[in-house]
Design a protein around this nucleic acid. Structure first.
Lengths: 144, 144
DNA sequence: CTTGTAATGAGAACTACTCTCGTTTAGGTT
DNA sequence: AACCTAAACGAGAGTAGTTCTCATTACAAG
């Protein structure tokens, strides 16, 4: 169990940024949510956040490697804590009806061989891999 | 080797749509491109296409299962022929610098076990899987 | 306390995409 | 062929998620 806020502050500092109250609020909210949040969802949970500041801070947190942005085709971007902070590599189930995004994990053995295969694919094509992203597209229980 | 246009026409007809010249042009372009195209790229290749019609037809082709839409975080959606038409299951390498999207495939054995694992994950959570999507995020040779 | 710099937030601006609506085209019937 | 009806077209207006502007506020250092 790492101290998420300490790590967030470290990463922001390395980027020449401060760990302000608003940014702490956002990190806290994403940590508590237990899954990706859209901006409306984030603002609904914390009314004191201004929309423009929230967007700006999410961009800054993303650049610092604290937050990860997920784009789906329902128009709303989703935000979650970077996996390095949560120490929990996972993937996403995306509902094509309501747009909700939830986490899931693969068996460790499969994840390993997947990782290796992706590295092989990447080196063969001179592509510098930063990360991979595996999404399940379908219909969630609530929408079916 | 299937006839892509025949299949496209069948799928459109099943949706109560016609396979018009503009739609054929789009399918042709996506087939020739050998990879996903953004709308600007598509219009650049075929100047006679109107923007609004191209967007509308891409949406119709997507609804009919002829075209697949890929959203990235560079703002531009990409379009490619549905894998059922190309008979070629593949994944995407997305360059985080220039936004370009290219295809790649996994070893068949790995793809199989991945498929099985995803089905297991899905049934366990009452999620009705329509498809999966695996992306490599990183920097392409041209941008590094 | 003072001073410089970064962060804030209300609203304007941006832009990828969708919608509107008058015109054109195409498929079916006589 | 000529007609008719409905679909498709396309130029431009509209929408909406996101980003930018800039005046104000908060913070950190000396």
């Amino acid at each position: 169990m790492v101290d998420i806020h300490a790590l967030a502050e470290t990463r922001l500092r390395a980027d020449g940024q401060r760990y302000t109250r608003n940014r702490r609020t956002i990190v806290e909210a994403l940590d508590r949510a237990g899954g990706p949040l859209s901006l409306p969802q984030l603002l609904h949970r914390h009314r004191q956040l201004a929309q423009s500041s929230a967007y700006r801070n999410l961009a800054i947190l993303e650049a610092a490697g604290v937050v990860h942005r997920i784009v789906t085709n329902d128009g709303f971007a989703r935000f979650e804590l970077a996996q390095a902070l949560t120490e929990h590599h996972h993937h996403h189930r995306i509902c094509s009806t309501c747009g909700s995004v939830e986490d899931f994990t693969l068996p460790a053995a499969l994840e390993d061989s997947l990782e290796k295969a992706l590295r092989r694919v990447a080196t063969k094509s001179d592509f510098q891999v930063a990360s991979h992203q595996l999404d399940l597209i379908g219909v969630c229980p609530g929408c079916s």
